[in-house]
Amino acid sequence: MSKKVLVVDDDPDVRSFVVTVLEENQYIPLIAQDGVEGLEKIEKEKPDLVILDVLMPRGSGIRLYHHLKTHDQFKALPIIMFTGIALRSFLKSQKVLDEFQGAEVPKPDIYLEKPVDPEVLAAAVRKKLG
């Protein structure tokens, strides 16, 4: 059975790109425009993987990531960070958030910096989902 992958990104260009890559690789794409909608979709649709943008208005990717990694029911959900900012800046802001919320979360398993070739993205998804 095909697996469901949720793309959370506020940029429609990025969404349609990722959606196309997923379709081409026989996954079922789901989309969300921001962190809030992302969490709703995760609860409702139970995707097998989340591709998450870091910088979004309202409930940024960093916050959603934090939420997922600090709530037991989501801890096992694999996440690919997919973003325009460098890993270094991401880790720094994550650290700030960790300190702020008093919980330390693991680093993301896969961190892809845009732009990404469709093959690289597909390979990352395959690595997580088989």
């Binding site: 940029d11 990025v14 349609s16 196309t20 325009g84 845009k114 732009p115």
Partner: peptide
Amino acid sequence: AHYVKNILIGLKGGSYIVDV
């Protein structure tokens, strides 16, 4: 640079979709 990079991401993504 950031902004231009975003445009590039858009263009790359768009051309991939066109290819498909």
